[in-house]
C-alpha cells in the first residue's frame, strides 16, 4: 500500500462523518436560506430572506448584541487570564488548590454556570441580599439590573467566569514550553521587569492567547443556552433569535432562520481562517 492510499484510508472515516454531516448540514441550511424548499412549493432560489433580515431592526440589534457579548467577554477574559497565568506560574502556598479549581471549571457545562450566575447576580440574588443586609438597598428593585439586562452584563460575567480558566490553562501550557532563560537574559541586559514582560514574554505568549481568544469569541458569539438563561426579552442574542424563528409555528419564517444560521457560519469561518493563520504563524515564530 502506498502512503497516499494509507493516508486516504486513515482519514476516510473522519472525512466521511464530518464531511457527511457537517458539510451537508451546512449545505442544506444554505439552500433553505435561499428559499429553496420544494416541500413547501418553493423552487426558485432568491435572496429575499437575507434582504428581510438585513433590513429588520430586530435582527441588526441582535447581531450587534452578539458581537458586543463576544468582544467584551473575550477581551475581559483574555486580560484576566493573562494575569492569572502569570500568577499561577509562581510558587506560593495554595497554588495547587487554585490549579485544581481552574481545571474543575473546564469540566462545568455552561448551562450550570449560567444558572449559578443568575442566582448570584439577579436583583433578588445573593449579592442583592448582601447589599440589603449591608443597608445599601431597601428592595430588590434598587439593586442594579445585572441579569436579563439590556447590556448583557450577566452573559458577559458568565463567559468571563467560564473562559478565564480555559485561556489560563492554554497560557500555562505555553509558559511551560518557554524557558525562563529568555526573561533572565533580557533582565541581565538591563530590561526592567515590565520591559522583559512586554517585549520578551508577551510576544511569545501572543499566538496562544490569540488562538484561545478566537475560540472564545466564536463560542460566545454562537452559544444558545447562555443567553437563553441570562438574556433580556429584547434584543435577543442572535442564536436565541435564530432558534425562535426556526421553531415558530409559522413555517414561512424558516428561510430567515436559515439565513441567520448562514451568517453565523460566515462569522465562524472568518474566525476559523484567523485561527489557522495564528496557528501557522505561531508555529513559525514561536521558539
Amino acid at each position: 500500500m502506498t502512503d497516499r492510499h494509507r493516508i486516504l484510508l486513515l482519514l476516510a472515516p473522519a472525512l466521511v462523518i464530518l464531511g457527511g454531516l457537517f458539510i451537508t448540514g451546512l449545505g442544506l441550511t444554505l439552500l433553505r436560506s435561499l428559499r429553496y424548499f420544494p416541500g413547501l412549493g418553493l423552487t426558485d432560489p432568491d435572496l429575499s430572506a437575507y434582504r428581510a433580515i438585513l433590513t429588520s431592526p430586530g435582527f441588526l440589534k441582535s447581531l450587534g448584541l452578539s458581537l458586543w457579548i463576544a468582544s467584551a467577554s473575550t477581551l475581559i477574559a483574555a486580560g484576566l487570564a493573562l494575569a492569572a497565568a502569570l500568577l499561577l506560574r509562581q510558587t506560593f502556598p495554595g497554588r495547587a488548590v487554585i490549579s485544581f479549581l481552574v481545571q474543575l471549571n473546564l469540566t462545568i457545562p455552561h448551562i450550570v454556570g449560567a444558572i449559578g450566575i443568575l442566582y448570584l447576580f439577579s436583583q433578588s440574588g445573593s449579592f442583592a441580599r448582601l447589599a440589603h443586609a449591608a443597608g445599601l438597598i431597601a428592595a430588590p428593585g434598587d439593586f442594579p439590573a445585572l441579569t436579563q439586562d439590556p447590556y448583557a452584563i450577566g452573559i458577559i460575567l458568565l463567559y468571563v467566569w467560564k473562559e478565564l480558566p480555559f485561556i489560563t490553562l492554554i497560557l500555562l501550557a505555553n509558559l511551560q514550553s518557554i524557558s525562563a532563560d529568555h526573561e533572565s537574559v533580557a533582565r541581565s541586559l538591563g530590561a526592567t521587569r515590565w520591559q522583559a514582560f512586554r517585549h520578551v514574554l508577551l510576544p511569545m505568549l501572543m499566538p496562544g492567547l490569540a488562538a484561545a481568544s478566537a475560540l472564545v469569541f466564536a463560542f460566545a458569539f454562537g452559544a444558545y443556552e447562555v443567553p437563553l438563561i441570562l438574556g433580556a426579552s429584547a434584543p435577543k442574542a442572535l442564536p436565541v433569535l435564530a432558534w425562535q424563528s426556526y421553531t415558530d409555528t409559522d413555517l414561512s419564517t424558516r428561510p430567515e432562520a436559515m439565513a441567520m444560521a448562514v451568517l453565523i457560519a460566515l462569522f465562524g469561518l472568518l474566525l476559523l481562517f484567523l485561527y489557522m493563520r495564528i496557528l501557522r504563524s505561531g508555529g513559525r515564530d514561536a521558539p
Binding site: 451546512l26 442544506l28 441550511t29 466564536a218 444558545y224 432558534w243 444560521a261 474566525l271
Partner: peptide
C-alpha cells in the same frame, strides 16, 4: 469553531 447553531437546522 463554527457554532452548533450554524449547522443544527
Amino acid at each position: 469553531i463554527l457554532p452548533g447553531l450554524a449547522i443544527v437546522f
